[in-house]
Structure formats: C-alpha cells, structure tokens
Design a protein around this nucleic acid. Structure first.
Length: 540
DNA sequence: CGTATTTGACCTGCGC
DNA sequence: GCGCAGGTCAAATACG
C-alpha cells in the first residue's frame, strides 16, 4: 500500500489537542478536511494556491465575495469552511461601507466568473467526498489486513513457542525422572548434544533446575533471585510446574502455549495450591500516553475494585477479564502520579480462552514478556540479563522503553512507550503515532490494531522486523532491528554483542521480542469492549 | 430486570 | 502483635 495514504487517512479530527498537533507536525500537507482553514494548514500564499482553487477564489476576488454576501447568496458561503478566516472576515469588515460600490460594479463578466467558481467548488466538493469515501474504504481494508496479520502473527508465535516448549520438555523430563546423573550420562541422553547451563546443582539438597529457569550460580544474590526469599526451592517448584503444564496441556492456549512459568511460588505452599497464585505473579506493565480512561486491548474487562494507592493521588482500578468464565487475567489501571497523561496498565495472568485478533497482540506481548521474565533465562556476561539491554533489545526505539523491575513485589516487565529521547523528542514511531492518532498517543502492544499506526509504519519495515526474528531465532535479527530499522545511537556494539549472545542462547527471548514488536506493529483498536475507569476521584 | 460499577469491608502479606 | 498497604469480595447502586 502506498505510504501516502497513511498520511491522508485521518480526515476528521476532533480532538482538542489536534490543533497544536498539526501545527507542530504539519505532515498532512494534502489534507482535504474542511474543518481546517487554509491559514493554519499552510504558511505561505504559494502553498495556499497549491491546494486547489477554493483558496484563490476568495483571496483574489474580494469584490465578488462582498457582493455574494451582501446579496445573501449562500451558495458561496458553504465554501467558507475552507477559508474561514479570509472569507468571512472580509465580508464582515466591508459589508456596510462597500454596499453601493458592489451593487454598481456588478457585471456579467463577474457573474460568469462567479458561476464558474461555484461550479468549480461544487466539483471540488464532489471530489472531496469521493476522496473521503475512498479513505474510508482504505481504512476498512487496512483494518482487515491488520487483523489478518495479527492473527497470523499470533499463530506463528504460538507455533514457535510450542516448538520450544516441546524441545524443553524433552530435555527436562529425563532429568526430573532420573534424578542425579552424571553430566556424561545426560549428554548421552541428549544424543551427545551438550545443552548449555543444563542440570545445574543448586545446593546441598541436590535440587536440579530447569535450564530455562536458572542461568547461573553466580548471581544467586542478585535482585531477581531474592524476590521470593527462597530461590532454590522456588526454582525447583518452577521446574515441576512447568513439567506438569507441559504434560497436561501440551497444546495449551492458542496464544500462550507456555502458559505461565512459575518462579514466585511460596516455598511453604504445595505446588498444587501455588499454581494459580504463581500464574498471576508475573506482570507486564504498559505505560502509555492516553487521555482515555483505559487503553483498549481487545479484551472485555469488568471492574471489580478501586483503591487509592500510596503515593499516587489517582486511584488504581482493578479489572478482570470477562471474555470467559474463570479467566484468571486481571489488570490494574492507574495514572502516573508524575505525569497524569500517562496511563499505566499492568497485566497479570494468562487467558484461558481464545482471543479476538485485536487482543492477540497484547496477549502475546504480555505472555511472552512474562514468560521471558519468569523463565529467568537471560544470560549475559555476569549471568543476569542486563535490564538496559533488554529494554533496548525489546523495544529499540527508545533507551528506556522496556525494563524489568524485580524490586517490586512481583517481577514486572514494563513496556514504557511514553519514553522520550535524550533530546526530548519522541521516538520516531511515537511521533508517527501521535500524528496519526492524537486520541491515542501510543501504539500499545495491547492488541491495539489501530490502522493508523499500521499506516504510519512503512510497509517494507514489517516483514523486515518480523520475519527475521521469527524465522531465524537469532539475535542477528534483533541486531537488524536495532541497527537498520530503528536507528538508536545509544546502542553500542558491545550491547549488541551481548544481545546476540543472549538471544542466541535463549529462544524464549526471541519469542518475546517478536511478540513485542508484532504488538507494536499491530496498532490499536479504540474502544473495543472496554469499560471506562472512573476519574481521579477516589472512593476511600 | 439484567448487567456493570461503586464502595466499604475484609483478607493477606510485610515491616517494625 | 500491630499497623499499613495492596488486593479482593460482595452488597448497594446505577444504568440501559
């Protein structure tokens, strides 16, 4: 699809922010919307002339305008919408004093000229309507393509994750059953293939750990490892839970075959009891600029609570997914205390039901991010995933778009798409989003398949971004994303090298990366089954 | 009247 | 043990 259409799709802006928005980013050079006057849209008279004749008509023929209005001819007035300032003001200023002059100066020549102009304007209006209808049609097509794309993307991610899951199951189950075997024996069981960081001893008890859950011994004192107070036991439980999940539901849900890896089990609880709890402890937080009370992510939510959180004057609203009975997914919505234009949405849990295409992008993002986080499989030089690296690798548009917070009560991946570059400018894609849809400033990974964002992305980028990570599962693809598609000067070669190693060693991360990117590319669907959150008023 | 939202009460975990 | 904060429940209320 032609890029140009992406710029002309938005033809009926209504948001109050839009005026300033267009002033700052006059990318809609060929905007046919009658709601804008020519003086705001174009800065020079030459530019005014470049947009068809309606502007010339009023600016060059002042006497005619006077006459038309003095005679109460409304046919011209309909076109005032195009040139509100120049046309109406002139009439108002001169209507009284120039009346006689106008009457005396009427000539057939002028009248014919007037009729010609009227005719011209009528044609232009027809053309405008035609363009608008075509815009609508293209919008519809874009939505359709976007939905199909999201569905396919999700299917692909699902298949990939299932593949990884199956391979992990093959590797971990012999270990679970056999118990303590020598590394040599394990190598034999894996057809002589040495699996990195596999079957590590965690302590005197001889607890073994899923290789995807424990990257290294050396960082047991690190933040992530101290989250639940008893890392060793926790990791062992994680391994068991994963095995159980793989056995009981190998195909799992459509969008989250990995279900919810468990890391946060309380060591005192039986595995069966803690399963539900741990499923919901990994969180994915999304920061977005939005005036709307709640971001649209394609799911249906029911509000079940609201509380004042400490340190934030804005209430925190609690929602649970109502698309299926017993769906454990919940989310919290709260405005940022520092910047109330930022909406923080925290997702928790895994859907137990099929999702509409509009919701798949977000679901895949949150699921993959949570899986990635809980798997604890981010190797790096010091054995732990560098947070900054993760941020850059997942969302290379900004230096601080994705972060992992382990200091919070729950491990949380934060996708911060409100971030700005060091010079204060928004990331490129962010700017495009703002231009395309001021209502919704940020292209949420929340299954927001908004056509505007898709349109704002140049078509060639999509396969380039998505194809490589999805099919190659190598960090090289991640490097291409960082270096080629979204230029980010702060990403050093060292970082990229570390990223390469990390991605190569961890297919989970690649899946998460792909999901995150796909969700961004997916765009958004506004007002999709969401209920509004009450304003800043508190109830407690 | 059914469904969604509001909101006070209650539960739980954690720090002191 | 106590207080605090986060999270959830469920009756009351609002809404279509």
């Amino acid at each position: 699809m032609d890029k140009g259409w992406g710029l002309t799709l938005e033809t009926s802006p209504s948001n109050s922010d839009r005026a300033g928005f267009f002033k700052n980013k006059p990318v809609f050079g060929f905007n046919l919307s009658p709601k804008y006057n020519a003086g705001e849209m174009f800065s020079s008279s030459d530019e005014k002339r470049s947009i068809v004749n309606e502007v010339d008509f009023f600016s060059d023929k002042k006497p005619i305008v006077k006459k038309e209005n003095s005679q109460g001819d409304n046919s011209i007035r309909t076109d005032d919408q195009f040139v509100v300032n120049t046309g109406l003001q002139l009439v108002t200023a001169n209507a009284g004093s120039d009346q006689s002059t106008v009457d005396d100066g009427v000539s057939s020549e002028v009248l014919e000229d007037k009729r010609a102009k009227i005719q011209q304007l009528a044609q232009l209006q027809v053309e405008l309507e035609r363009m608008n209808s075509e815009n609508q049609r293209l919008k519809g097509m874009l939505v359709q393509v976007n939905n199909s794309y999201s569905a396919l993307q999700m299917h692909l991610v699902t298949l990939m994750q299932q593949q990884q899951l199956n391979s992990k199951t093959e590797n971990t189950h012999p270990h679970e059953v056999v118990g303590a075997k020598s590394d040599e024996e394990k190598k034999k069981e894996n057809n002589g293939t040495i699996v990195p960081r596999q079957f590590m001893e965690l302590g005197p008890s001889g607890s073994k750990v899923d290789p995807m859950d424990e990257p290294s011994h050396s960082h047991s004192s690190s933040e992530e490892r101290t989250l639940s107070g008893s890392p060793r036991n926790n990791v062992e439980l994680v391994s068991r839970d994963k095995a159980i999940n793989r056995e009981e539901s190998p195909e799992s849900e459509s969008w989250a075959p990995n279900k919810a890896p468990k890391l946060m089990n309380s060591s005192s609880k039986p595995v069966e009891q803690s399963t539900e709890a741990t499923m919901r402890k990994a969180r994915v937080s999304v920061r977005a600029r939005s005036e709307a009370p709640m971001i649209s992510d394609g799911c249906q939510w029911r509000k079940y609570g609201q509380k004042m959180a400490k340190g934030n004057p804005c209430p925190r609203a609690y929602y649970r997914c109502t698309m299926a009975v017993g769906c454990p997914v919940r989310k919290q919505v709260q405005r940022c205390a520092d910047d109330r234009t930022i909406l923080i949405t925290t997702y928790e849990g895994t859907h137990n039901h099929p999702l509409p295409p509009a919701a798949m992008a977000m679901a895949s993002t949150t699921s993959a991010a949570a899986n990635m986080l809980l798997s604890g499989s981010m190797p790096s030089a010091d054995g732990l995933m560098n947070t900054d690296f993760l941020a850059r690798a997942m969302l290379p548009c900004s230096s601080n778009m994705a972060t992992i917070s382990a200091s919070a009560p729950f491990p949380t991946v934060t996708l911060d798409l409100t971030a700005q570059n060091p010079n204060g400018a928004l990331p490129n894609y962010h700017q495009r989003i703002n231009q395309a849809n001021p209502h919704f400033q940020f292209p949420l990974p929340a299954g927001l398949n908004h056509p505007n964002f898709a349109a704002s992305m140049s078509a060639p980028q999509m396969p380039h971004i998505l194809g490589q990570p999805l099919y190659n599962q190598s960090k090289f693809s991640g490097l291409q994303i960082s270096q080629d598609n979204i230029h980010h000067p702060s990403i050093s070669h060292d970082t990229l090298s570390a990223a390469t190693a990390a991605i190569t060693a961890d297919p989970n991360f690649t899946a998460a990366l792909a999901a995150a990117i796909s969700s961004i590319i997916g765009g958004s669907h506004p007002n999709n089954g969401n209920s509004p959150m009450s304003g800043p008023s508190s109830n407690k």
